[in-house]
């Protein structure tokens, strides 16, 4: 008797009307975002990259004119990007300042947000009111308002003696390190204002932690400190990364950021080398640094996969491999059977 190979039957189920409609609805819901992202994200990204490589001129008759794509030379790239990095006296120091101050202020904002979120997650009276207070700056804060705050020196806490603190820090730290640390104290209000959304994200993450874990830990005699380190913090870890990314992006694209000012200045400058193309090159260098910064935080906070989950996946992979092996053997047997036990033709 000939062994027939076990055929894996793929049953094709025709999609029902309801399923199709649901899929269509999903697409329709996404269309505004797709259009928005295409027009306001993808197109500007590629245009700015193009401008950074091409020579760009602007006049009132022809509007903006860039060197055609096929005429762009390697020299252009060298020219603009090298100019920004090596000749611009303001850009690199500003970039360095941004880098150091962001590296210092992001952990402060995230830790502060986490502490406030944990406090607001307690069973306290007027919880909603306190949450609203911390979120209020996000609603009313805007570029001009923040500028007004900093112009009127209202971005420091009057109860904190910032002058003494900055003096003390400056006495033992080198200026390059002391400046970003002291700027934390002089811009305390601004930093607190950045915490609205991270607090909200942490609260939602805290509310998703299964309370039975705390009960079990409590039964096992764990202290609150231990529960924080073993239950709360691991559960919040993905949100820490999310908040870090959010805070970096917020700080980087803020009107208060001096590099944004430099880019705008370069755009409208009348000098030979500056203009749209130069500003676009600046923006791209800045964007790369920003992505690297996000990458650093991602490397630090990227959640490692669970050990058991890892093992489970390994076993899954092994089983799939064995199934493929069996299938392969069965197919080979079928081929052999066909070749050597061919029915005799009379």
């Amino acid at each position: 008797m000939r062994n027939r190979p076990a055929k894996v039957n793929k049953i094709r189920v025709k999609r029902g009307k309801l399923e199709k409609r649901e899929a269509m609805m999903g697409v329709l819901f996404c269309v505004p975002w797709i259009i928005g992202a295409a027009v306001f994200l993808v197109y500007p990204i590629f245009t700015s990259l193009y401008y950074s490589l091409a020579g760009v001129t602007v006049d009132s008759v022809n509007g903006i004119m860039a060197t055609p794509l096929n005429q762009i030379q390697w020299n252009n790239l060298q020219e603009k990007y090298v100019q920004v990095i090596s000749h611009d006296q303001n850009f690199l120091p500003a970039l360095l300042d941004y880098l150091v101050s962001t590296l210092v202020s992001v952990p402060v904002i995230v830790v502060f947000s986490m502490i406030i979120a944990m406090m607001l997650n307690q069973k306290i009276r007027g919880k909603g009111f306190f949450r609203m207070i911390f979120f209020l700056p996000v609603i009313i804060v805007s570029g001009p308002l923040l500028s007004l705050l900093s112009e009127s020196s209202a971005n420091t806490l009057s109860v904190v003696d910032t002058q003494t603190i900055t003096g003390a820090i400056g006495s033992f730290l080198p200026p390059a390190l002391a400046t970003p640390v002291t700027s934390l104290f002089t811009n305390m209000v601004t930093i607190l204002w950045y915490s609205g959304v991270p607090i909200l994200i942490f609260i939602s993450a805290l509310q998703k932690i299964d309370t039975s874990q705390y009960e079990a830990a409590y039964v096992d005699g764990a202290s609150a400190w231990e529960m924080f380190w073993k239950i709360t913090l691991p559960a919040l870890k993905p949100m820490i990364l999310l908040n870090c990314v959010y805070t970096i992006v917020f700080i980087s694209s803020n009107d208060q950021n001096s590099i944004i000012g430099l880019i705008k200045q370069a755009m409208i400058s009348g000098t030979d080398e500056k203009g749209y193309d130069y500003a676009a090159a600046m923006a791209w260098i800045y964007a790369i640094v920003e992505v690297l910064l996000v990458g650093i935080f991602a490397l630090i906070f990227m959640t490692r996969r669970d050990k058991y989950e890892k093992q489970g996946k390994k076993i899954d992979r092994q089983m799939r491999r064995e199934r493929r092996k069996v299938l392969h053997i069965q197919r080979r047997q079928a081929r052999h059977a066909k070749r050597y036990h061919r029915p005799t033709v009379r």
């Binding site: 602007v58 006049d59 009132s60 008759v61 409208i268 400058s269 009348g270 000098t271 203009g275």
Partner: peptide
């Protein structure tokens, strides 16, 4: 481009032929 404009920095206005 508007028909009539004000400006304060002439390098900006001249370099862009405004």
């Amino acid at each position: 481009a508007p028909d009539v404009i004000m400006y304060s920095d002439c390098d900006f206005a001249l370099s862009n032929m405004l």
